[in-house]
Simulated assay, not measured.
Amino acid sequence: MTTQWLDLDTVPALPGLFMRAVLRRGITGKKLPDLGLRTQISIDPENLTAYRKVCGVVESSLLPPAYPHVLAFPLQLKLLTDKHFPFPLLGLVHLENSIQVLRPLAGLGPFSISVHVENLQPHDKGAVFSVITRLEDQLGLLWQGDSRILCRGVKLEGSPEAPLELPDVQLTERAHWHAPSDIGRRYARVAGDYNPIHLSALSAKLFGFPQAIAHGLWNKGRVLAELREQLPDSGYQVDVRFKKPLLLPGDVVLKSSADAASGQFTLTGTNDMPHLQGTWQPLDSSVQSPN
């Protein structure tokens, strides 16, 4: 599928897109659109500072490795609420997330940021697809993200792929922290993602949750803040699987393998409830080469 790119003059405004997401109901097809969106963007230093604070990231000359997802959120929302996108946004489930940091994430821009969807596959609970996000500068690709999203109720031909099992390795506790009841609202103010399941117990109950749940990308951003000493400035990939929701408020423990070029980590809560499982590893030279 060849992506048909639409270049936007500015970053999309969120209020109208939220309304479009609320009003959209029902599955309208089984084919992803070939539409891609891209625009120029510069980073707001105040927003970056707020992100570092809410995710526990220390001050640095480099951008936090999960921060480009925040920059891309308006584009992602516009694409996923486009009339040609076949699935309603409300109810989609973020299953997995992978980021590749090809070169050091330095400076405040301007950057080019783009999003498109691809790789629709059957899943035992419906269908999954990828939202691909790319951040580029004048030299080419800096960072790439792949968010694997589940839409329940879609029937596709074929058999679901079995998830890859991670090898057993020894993990030791690296950090623990408390996720307060308002962390969903605090992260939303930074990321712009006002999904009601993250905002309050009352709004989360409308979607079947007993309490508000922490945003998966907040969990990942907080984990990467703790793993900063194990990750290089660039040339690496971090993959996570989102497991059970983290109900707010809640306490979590981060465990990881020994310091090395590759490794594993887990984020667990009460009674060893798994919330997140992941790996880090170096990129090979072909992936790191500029476009």
Results as ranks from 00 to 15, higher is better:
Lys244Pro: 02
Leu254Asp: 08
Lys244Ser: 00
Leu246Phe: 00
Ala258Asp: 15
Pro232Val: 06
Asp251Gly: 08
Pro249Asn: 04
Leu231Ile: 14
Ser256Ile: 04
Gln230Ala: 13
Ser234Trp: 13
Leu248Cys: 01
Val253Pro: 06
Arg241Trp: 07
Val240Cys: 11
Leu247Thr: 01
Ser256Tyr: 07
Asp233Leu: 15
Pro232Asp: 10
Leu254Met: 10
Asp239Tyr: 08
Leu248His: 00
Asp251Ala: 02
Glu229Ser: 15
Ser257Pro: 03
Asp233Gln: 15
Val240Ala: 01
Leu231Met: 10
Tyr236Gly: 14
Glu229Phe: 08
Val252Phe: 05
Val252Leu: 05
Ser256Lys: 10
Pro232Cys: 07
Pro232Lys: 06
Lys243Met: 12
Lys255Gln: 12
Arg241His: 07
Val253Gly: 01
Ser257Ala: 11
Arg241Val: 08
Leu254Ala: 09
Asp233Phe: 12
Val240Tyr: 09
Gly235Ile: 11
Arg241Asp: 08
Arg241Thr: 14
Leu248Val: 01
Asp233Lys: 15
Leu247Pro: 01
Gly250Thr: 02
Leu254Thr: 01
Val252Met: 06
Leu254Gln: 01
Leu231Arg: 11
Val240Thr: 09
Leu247Ser: 04
Lys243Gln: 10
Gly250Phe: 03
Leu246Gln: 03
Phe242Val: 03
Leu254Glu: 07
Lys244Arg: 06
Pro245Asp: 02
Leu248Trp: 03
Gln237Ser: 14
Asp233Glu: 15
Gln230Ser: 14
Pro245Ser: 00
Gln230Asp: 11
Val238His: 03
Lys243Glu: 01
Ser256Gln: 05
Val253Lys: 06
Ser234Arg: 12
Val252Cys: 04
Leu246Ser: 00
Gly235Tyr: 07
Ala258Glu: 14
Arg241Pro: 05
Tyr236Glu: 05
Pro232Ser: 07
Ser234Lys: 15
Ala258Arg: 14
Tyr236Ile: 12
Gly235Met: 13
Gln237Asn: 09
Leu254Asn: 05
Lys243Val: 00
Val238Gly: 08
Asp251Phe: 04
Asp251Met: 00
Asp251Leu: 00
Ser257Gly: 09
Asp251Pro: 02
Leu246Ile: 04
Phe242Pro: 04
Glu229Tyr: 09
Lys244Ile: 03
Lys244Leu: 00
Pro245Tyr: 02
Leu246Thr: 01
Lys255Ser: 13
Lys243Asn: 06
Arg241Leu: 03
Val240Gln: 07
Gly235Arg: 13
Ser257Gln: 13
Gln230Phe: 10
Leu246Asn: 03
Val252Thr: 09
Val238Tyr: 06
Gln230Thr: 15
Leu231Tyr: 10
Leu231Gly: 14
Val252Asn: 01
Gln237Cys: 14
Tyr236Thr: 13
Ser257Val: 10
Asp233His: 15
Pro249Ser: 04
Val240Phe: 11
Ser234Met: 13
Gln230Cys: 12
Val252Ile: 07
Asp239Phe: 06
Gln237Leu: 14
Tyr236Asp: 11
Asp239Glu: 10
Leu248Tyr: 05
Ser234Gln: 12
Gly250Met: 11
Gly250Leu: 04
Ser257Leu: 08
Gly250Gln: 02
Gly250Tyr: 05
Leu246Trp: 00
Lys255Met: 08
Ser256Asp: 12
Lys255Trp: 06
Ser257Trp: 10
Pro232Met: 10
Asp233Ser: 15
Lys255Arg: 14
Val240His: 05
Gly250Ala: 01
Glu229Val: 15
Lys255Ile: 02
Val238Thr: 11
Glu229Gly: 09
Asp239His: 08
Gln230His: 14
Leu254Ser: 04
Asp251Arg: 11
Val252Gly: 03
